[in-house]
C-alpha cells in the first residue's frame, strides 16, 4: 500500500491529465486513474522495470482510456462517435513565459478544444508530447508502437491543429 501512495504522488498528476484530456469527462477520468492504480498494485510483482515506472503507469492509463472510448463508440451507436464531453476538469497553470499582450488562458482553452477534436490516436500523442512532455522514445514505450508511427501521428495532429488555428500563424 505504501507503493500505491508513492505511485499516486509521483504519477497521479500525469495520469489524471492524460485521462481527462482523452476522456473529456472528469468523473470517468477519475475512475480510470483509480483503476490504473489498482491494476498497478495487482501487477506490481510482475513489473520488471524495463521501461520505467512512469511509462508503465501511463501505458495502463492510456489502455484504459482507449477501452472507455471504444465502449462509448459502441454504446453511442454512431459511426461518427460521440460528441466530445466538454467537462474535462483541466486546470489552467501556465508553464514558461508568454507574450503578455496575448490572452494566454483563452488561447490555451482554444488550443485544448482543438486538441479535443483530434482523432483519438492523434490526440493521445499530442497530449503525451506537448502536455506531459514525454520524449518520442517514452511515447513508443507507452503506446507500444514504432517511432515512425508516433512521429507520423504527431505530424498529422500538427497539420490539423495548424489548420484550425490558422489565425495564430499570421
Amino acid at each position: 500500500m505504501a507503493a500505491l501512495e508513492q505511485l499516486l504522488e509521483r504519477f497521479g498528476g500525469a495520469m489524471a491529465t492524460l485521462a481527462r484530456s482523452m476522456l473529456r469527462d472528469a468523473t470517468e477520468a477519475q475512475d480510470v486513474v483509480e483503476e490504473s492504480l489498482m491494476r498497478a498494485h495487482e501487477a506490481g510483482p510482475g513489473f520488471r522495470g524495463e521501461r520505467g515506472v512512469r511509462t508503465w503507469m501511463l501505458r495502463i492509463t492510456a489502455n484504459l482510456c482507449r477501452d472507455r472510448l471504444r465502449r462509448r463508440r459502441f454504446t453511442a451507436g454512431s459511426l461518427d462517435g460521440p460528441t466530445p464531453i466538454e467537462d474535462p476538469g483541466l486546470r489552467f497553470e501556465p508553464v514558461g513565459e508568454w507574450d503578455e499582450r496575448m490572452d494566454r488562458q483563452a488561447m490555451a482553452a482554444r488550443l485544448d478544444a482543438a486538441i479535443a477534436r483530434l482523432p483519438e490516436e492523434q490526440r493521445e500523442v499530442t497530449v503525451m508530447r506537448h502536455r506531459l512532455g514525454l520524449s518520442h522514445e517514452e511515447m513508443c514505450a507507452t503506446l507500444g508502437v514504432p517511432l515512425g508511427t508516433v512521429k507520423s501521428r504527431l505530424a498529422r495532429a500538427l497539420t490539423t491543429l495548424r489548420q484550425e488555428l490558422s489565425d495564430w500563424e499570421r
Binding site: T17, E34, L90, E93
Partner: peptide
C-alpha cells in the same frame, strides 16, 4: 503556441488513495 498545451493539467481528486484501497 503549441507550448500552451502544457498550461492545462489535472490532479487526481481528493480521497483517491482511500477509494483505491
Amino acid at each position: 503556441w503549441l507550448r500552451l498545451a502544457a498550461d492545462l493539467k489535472a490532479e487526481p481528486a481528493p480521497g483517491t488513495l482511500a477509494r483505491v484501497r
